[in-house]
Every structure is written in structure tokens, then in C-alpha cells.
Simulated assay, not measured.
Amino acid sequence: MKGKSIYLRPFEEKDVKALTDFQIRNRLFFEKFSMLRENTFYTEKAQLERINQFKSDRELDLGYHFGIFKNEDGELVGTITLFHVIRGSLQSAIVGYFLDQTHNGMGYTTEAVKLLVKHSFEELKLHRLEAGVMPHNIGSIRVLEKAGFHKEGIAKKNVLINGKWEDHQVLAIINPADS
């Protein structure tokens, strides 16, 4: 999936070094918004295992994990994921993303979310996408709103982050073809 500044593609084994470096470089930054990880997570072995799990998830239609790469030089600047894909009467998934701290504010995440939404609705035929964001993370809420998501409410003490149950602003978007 190609946009103006970035493209999304599934991770491959050849991405293991770039993904490991990305995780190490952003560890402290990401831990402000996500769970704490064991030191073993920050190894090429662990990242290769994740890449292989991503492939399995995709094949089983359980999740879709993409790298966010800059068009100009192919640099990995982020990750974006559809997880908890549910078929049947729900046809839904949850969106999550991480962008390299040095690339925040450049519009890459908004572009990536828009590409993922388009892919989710047009190719995967999902009906609804949801995302949860810590209420004080105004930048991330703004990203989702620019991509067409609307606020639905606060999920109280919804996600365990750094040993504390944190509230999350729930945002969602519905496939316009289903209106």
C-alpha cells in the first residue's frame, strides 16, 4: 500500500535488523504508551519470532502487521497493526501503531492509518475498526480523527501500562460501504 510519503508492507525476515533497531531506539518512548517488555524482546531472535508470528496471523486472518516505510529511502519509521480480527457478524478489528519518536509530527502516522483503513474496508471487507488511546495522548487522537475515526467514549482502566490500569479513549470508524 503506497501513499504520498510512506508505504506499508508486511514484515519479512529481511526486516529483522531494522525492526530490532527500531524497537531498541524507541524503547523508553514506547513504554510511556504501551506495556513494559522483557529485555529479550529487544533481540533479533525475538523480533524474528514476531515476524514469523505476523505471517501466521495473516495466513489465518487473525491479524495484519505492517511496517511503515518512507518512500524516499525505504527507512522503517513505524509499525501499524490490525489485531483481534473478528469475522462472522462483527467483521471488525482493532488498530494499533507506533511511530519512531524522531518522525513524530510529520504526518506519517495519519497517512499510514488512512492507508490501513482503505485496505481494511476495500480488501479485507471489514465493517468496523476501533482504536484505544490514552486520553492525554492528544496527538494520537488527532491522527485517528484526521483518518475519519469518531470518539465513542472512555474505557475505564482498560489497558495495563507500566503496572497501572489506564483509561483509554475509544475511537472507531465504520465502513462507508455498509451505510
Rank of each mutant, 00 (worst) to 15 (best):
F149E: 00
L90C: 14
E166G: 11
L8D: 05
R25E: 12
Q47A: 06
K32Y: 11
E12D: 01
L60T: 07
N137M: 02
G139Q: 06
E49I: 12
T110I: 04
E166K: 12
F29L: 04
S179M: 15
L115P: 03
E152A: 01
L129R: 00
A46Y: 14
K70Q: 04
H84V: 10
D15C: 03
V133T: 03
M35T: 15
G96R: 04
E145T: 03
N137R: 02
I173M: 02
I141T: 14
L36K: 13
Y97L: 01
A172T: 11
S140R: 03
P176D: 11
Q101W: 05
V77L: 00
L171I: 01
R27M: 08
M106E: 14
L8R: 06
R58H: 06
K125R: 15
F41D: 04
V143F: 04
K55R: 07
H168P: 02
H168F: 12
F30S: 01
Y7S: 03
N137Q: 01
E72Y: 12
L28R: 10
A112K: 04
K164Q: 12
G148K: 00
F69V: 03
E111N: 07
H84K: 15
F29P: 00
E123F: 14
V117S: 11
I173R: 02
E145S: 03
Y108E: 04
K4E: 09
A46L: 14
F33L: 10
V85A: 11
K118H: 13
R58C: 10
Q23V: 13
S56P: 09
F66M: 05
V95H: 05
T102G: 09
K151V: 00
N39M: 10
R25T: 12
V117F: 11
F30Y: 03
D73K: 01
Y97D: 01
T40W: 15
M35I: 14
I80M: 07
T20Y: 04
H168S: 11
K164W: 09
A155F: 10
N137L: 02
V170C: 08
L60M: 09
D15F: 05
Q101V: 08
W165A: 13
N158Q: 15
Q91C: 08
D73C: 01
V133S: 01
R9E: 06
S179F: 15
H168A: 10
L60N: 10
N52Y: 08
Q91R: 08
G148N: 01
H103W: 12
L115S: 02
F98N: 06
I138Q: 14
N26T: 11
Y7H: 07
E166M: 15
Q47N: 09
K125P: 14
T20R: 06
K70P: 00
K55A: 02
S56L: 15
L126G: 04
T110L: 09
Q101S: 11
T81N: 12
L28C: 06
S5W: 10
E111D: 05
K4H: 06
L60E: 12
Y108R: 03
K32Q: 11
